[in-house]
Nucleic acid binder design. Structure first.
Lengths: 124, 124
DNA sequence: TCCATATATGAGTGTATACTCATATAACAG
DNA sequence: CTGTTATATGAGTATACACTCATATATGGA
C-alpha cells in the first residue's frame, strides 16, 4: 500500500524533469476524460454490460453525434472497448478500475458535503 | 467494498434525474480539478508538508499569479487548506485521498502503457 | 443495385478556462 | 505614515473542447 504509493510518486517525481512532465500530462489527461458528466453518464450506462450506440443515445438523452464522440474519447483513453456486430457497434468497459476512481471521488465529496449529499437522496 | 460500490452507484443513478445531474456534475468537476498538470505538480509539492506560495512558485517554475490561481481552485475544491502566518500563506493537503486517485490513474496507465511506462524511467 | 439503418466525422460555434501582465490588498519593518 | 515583501485578483488573450448540423461511411435487406 505505502509501497505502491512510493512507487507511483517515484514515477511522478523523477529527476528528469522533461519526462516527468509527460507523465503528469498523461495523468492529467486521464482525469480530464473523466471530467465530463456526459462521459460519466455513459460509463454508468455501461457498468452492467455492453451497449450499442443507439442504446446509449437512449440512456443519455444526448444526440447520436455527441454520444459517438464521447465514446471515441473514452475508447482512445483505453477506458472502453469496441465490438462491431452487423450494423451495431457495442461498447464495453475495458478498464473497470475507473469505477474505483469514481468511488474515491464520491467518498471525498460525501465527506465534504455530508449534509448536502444526504439531501441529494443518498439513503438506500 | 462491493457494498460501498453499490452505495455510490445508488447515489449516482437515482431515479430523480435532476438531482442525479447535479451529482454527476459535482463528480466531474472534481475530476476536472485534477485534470491540470500544474495542479498535480502543486499537489505533489505539497505531499510532504505545507508550503507557502513562494516555495510553490519555486517548486513549479510557474508565475506567482498562476500558482495563486491554481491554489485557489484547489482550495475551493476542498483539496487544500490555507493558513496565514504573517506575510506568508501556507497551503496544505486537506484531502489526502487525492493521492489514492492519482495512484489509481497511474495503475491504469501503467497497465495500458506497460512498456512506455517502463521507458519513462519507472524503475526505482 | 438501391434503399434503410447504425455509426462516424468534418465544419462551425460557443463556452470554459489556463495563462500573463499589471495592479490591488495585506502585513510587517522602520 | 512610508516602503517592502507576499499574495490575490481584474482584465485580456489564446486554446481546448463540448455541442450541433449536415453528411459520409458501412452493413444488411429487398
Amino acid at each position: 500500500m505505502d509501497c505502491q504509493r512510493r512507487f507511483v510518486l517515484g514515477w511522478l517525481c523523477m529527476n528528469r524533469k522533461r519526462l516527468s512532465d509527460q507523465a503528469l500530462e498523461l495523468i492529467a489527461a486521464r482525469f480530464r476524460v473523466l471530467g465530463e458528466p456526459m462521459r460519466l453518464r455513459l460509463l454508468i450506462a455501461l457498468e452492467d454490460g455492453e451497449r450499442n450506440v443507439t442504446q446509449l443515445v437512449d440512456a443519455t438523452q444526448a444526440t447520436q453525434a455527441n454520444v459517438s464522440r464521447h465514446l471515441q474519447t473514452l475508447t482512445e483513453a483505453g477506458i472502453l472497448g469496441r465490438r462491431k456486430e452487423g450494423l451495431n457497434v457495442f461498447y464495453y468497459i475495458s478498464d473497470p478500475s475507473i469505477f474505483e476512481l469514481c468511488e474515491g471521488v464520491c467518498g471525498s465529496l460525501q465527506k465534504r458535503f455530508g449534509d448536502q449529499a444526504r439531501a441529494f437522496g443518498l439513503r438506500a
